Amino acid sequence: MFRRNSSKQVADATPADAVPAEPVMNGTSTKGRPTPTRKEAEAARKFRLGALPADPKERRRAERSANRSSYDRSRQALRAGDERHYPVRDQGPAKAFVRDYVDGRIRLLEMLMPLVILCWATLLMRNTSIYIYSSFVMEIVVVLGIGLGVLLGQRVKRQVAATFGPDEVRGTGFYAFSRAVMPRFLRQPKPRVTMRGEPKVR
């Protein structure tokens, strides 16, 4: 008798809309549903708060507009030298160090791009002799560029590891190569050191 009354009182005291928590083991609930990831939970939270329109077309339009605004802001930051709004690939003191390292002297890699463009232009000519020589020169330029890029990347990685630690080395070699092959006046962010390694006077 007392047991049935106690059970009834507990049932009456439980709110009708209460849902018992589901135990989670190894990232999966006991009902077989996977636990939402942090990204999914954040997206659901934004949707509930009304950060994104409910209509799929409007949501895509809003996302494109936000991406375009972020891209324009990053471009303006690169031109103005505002490091707070740099793209992710250009952020951090290690990347700034790599840029200064590459910009601090004249690089042979920088001179290869105009040569490649010249060879490519001559390939459009119908002269067989010029075509053969241009193809040969372009192959040499490509091999030379790869070799110089590998050497530059190794030097940059050693410098970054010695200055900032091994955790900051990842990606710096290719970052240095991609900047070195670009003509100096086209590099973004703009160089902040002269070709002698001295800080520019603004």
Rank of each mutant, 00 (worst) to 15 (best):
R38S: 12
R60K: 13
T37P: 07
V181S: 04
K31C: 15
G50V: 10
D55H: 10
I117H: 01
V98W: 05
S6Q: 01
R196P: 00
V10T: 09
L78S: 05
R3G: 14
V160Q: 03
G173I: 02
A80E: 03
R179H: 12
R158E: 15
V181N: 02
L148M: 03
R60Y: 11
L144A: 04
G81C: 08
I146A: 08
R126W: 14
L52A: 01
M195R: 08
K57H: 09
A21S: 15
I106D: 08
P191V: 02
D82F: 02
A80V: 07
E58H: 10
V141S: 09
R79V: 13
G171N: 06
P191N: 02
K39S: 15
V88H: 00
E110A: 06
E58K: 10
I146T: 06
G50F: 09
C119F: 05
A77M: 12
I146D: 08
R89E: 14
R202Q: 11
S134L: 07
L49Q: 14
T194K: 04
M138I: 14
P15R: 02
Y131D: 10
M182I: 06
E198A: 08
E168V: 04
A161Q: 01
H85N: 12
E63K: 09
F164K: 05
T194S: 12
I130C: 10
I130Q: 10
K31D: 15
S65P: 00
R184E: 05
R187Q: 01
F47H: 11
G32K: 02
L108M: 08
T172K: 06
E58N: 11
N67K: 14
R3Q: 15
A121M: 07
V141T: 09
R73K: 09
V193F: 00
E58P: 00
D17R: 08
R187N: 04
F177Y: 07
K39E: 15
V24I: 14
L148H: 07
S6V: 10
P114L: 01
D90W: 00
G197P: 00
L115V: 01
R99Y: 05
A77T: 10
A94N: 06
F97C: 04
S135P: 07
D90L: 11
K190Q: 09
Q154M: 15
N5Y: 11
R202P: 06
G165D: 05
A54S: 08
P199Y: 03
R107H: 08
T122M: 11
A44V: 07
F97I: 02
I117K: 11
D103I: 02
K95Y: 00
V142D: 02
M182T: 08
F97D: 07
V160I: 05
D12V: 14
A16W: 03
R89G: 14
V116E: 10
R202M: 07
R33K: 13
A94Q: 07
L52T: 05
S6E: 08
A176D: 10
L144S: 06
S70H: 05
T163C: 14
P53I: 15
E63R: 15
